[in-house]
Simulated scan of single mutants.
Amino acid sequence: MTENIGVLGKQKSAQSRGAERVVNAPLPTVYGKFQAIGYLDHDRGDEQVALVYGDIGTDDVLTRLHSECLTGDAFGSQHCECGDQLDAAMRAVVAEGRGIVVYLRGHEGRGIGLLAKLRAMALQAEGLDTVEANLALGLPVDARDYGVAAEILHDLGVASVRLLSNNPRKREALLEHGIKVSEEVPLLIPPCENNITYLRTKRERLDHHLPHLDAVAHWS
C-alpha cells in the first residue's frame, strides 16, 4: 500500500477543526492489510481511528461510519447487528479494493455510554423497546455526533463517499459537514430471533432503511 492515501503523504493536521492526526500504522487483519490512522478528538477527548484500505483517492470512496459497540463488536452480542455490520463493512471495503471504515469511539449505545446501554438493555428485557428504554433512563434517544467523522474524511482528502449505512442521519450529518454522499449502500444483515424487535424499532421509530425485515414477519 502506498503512502498517498488521499493527502496522507502531506501529513496534514486537522487539529484546527478538533481532530488531530496522531499516528499512521499498518494493521494486518483477517480481511486484509489496512492502515490504522489514529486521531485525537480535542473537542470530546475521544481517541478515534480510521481504517484505510488501498489508495482511496478523493471521490466516491466506499465508507463506513461505525459506531463503537463493545457488546456487538467484541462479544458477538445478538441483541444488535453491529458486529456483523462491522465484519461486512470491512469485507466490502477489501472487495472494493479501496475504502475507509471510521470507527467512532464515544458512540456506545447511540452515545449514552456502556453502562447506560446495559441498563437500557435490562429495561428492554422487561418489555420496553430501545427508544422507550433510553427515555425511561432520562437519556437521549440518539446522542451521537458525526462531526469528527467528517473532519477525519476531510483530513484524508475525501470529497465524496459511497456510504455503507441504513441510517439516514449519517448521510445528513456528512452533507452538513461538507462531505458529498454520492450513493447510500445498504448494509443489511439477516436478523435473528434475538434482535428482530430491536431492528423493527430502528426501522419504525428511528427511520433506518431495513426493508429485509418484511421477510421475517412471522417472528413475534
Rank of each mutant, 00 (worst) to 15 (best):
G97K: 13
G97Y: 10
I100N: 06
V101D: 00
Y103Q: 03
L104K: 00
L104M: 13
R105D: 04
R105F: 02
R105L: 04
G106Y: 02
E108M: 04
E108Y: 03
I112L: 06
L114K: 10
L118D: 13
R119K: 15
A120M: 07
A120H: 01
M121Y: 13
M121W: 08
A122T: 14
L123N: 04
Q124M: 11
E126D: 14
G127N: 11
D129T: 05
D129Y: 05
T130F: 06
V131S: 07
E132K: 05
A133F: 07
A133V: 04
L135F: 09
A136Y: 14
A136V: 14
L137Q: 10
G138R: 00
G138F: 00
P140G: 10
V141Q: 09
D142E: 09
D142F: 01
A143S: 14
A143W: 11
A143G: 12
R144A: 03
D145R: 00
Y146N: 02
Y146E: 04
G147C: 09
E151Q: 09
I152M: 11
L153S: 06
H154E: 08
H154I: 09
D155M: 09
D155E: 15
L156K: 02
L156R: 00
G157C: 06
V158K: 06
S160I: 08
V161T: 05
V161N: 04
V161F: 01
R162N: 12
R162I: 03
L164R: 06
L164S: 08
S165E: 05
N166Q: 03
N166A: 00
N166I: 00
N166P: 05
N167K: 06
P168D: 10
R169I: 12
R171P: 11
E172A: 15
E172D: 14
E172V: 13
A173M: 08
A173P: 03
A173V: 07
A173L: 08
L175I: 14
E176D: 15
E176P: 04
H177Q: 12
G178E: 13
G178Y: 12
V181C: 07
S182N: 13
S182R: 08
V185H: 10
P186T: 12
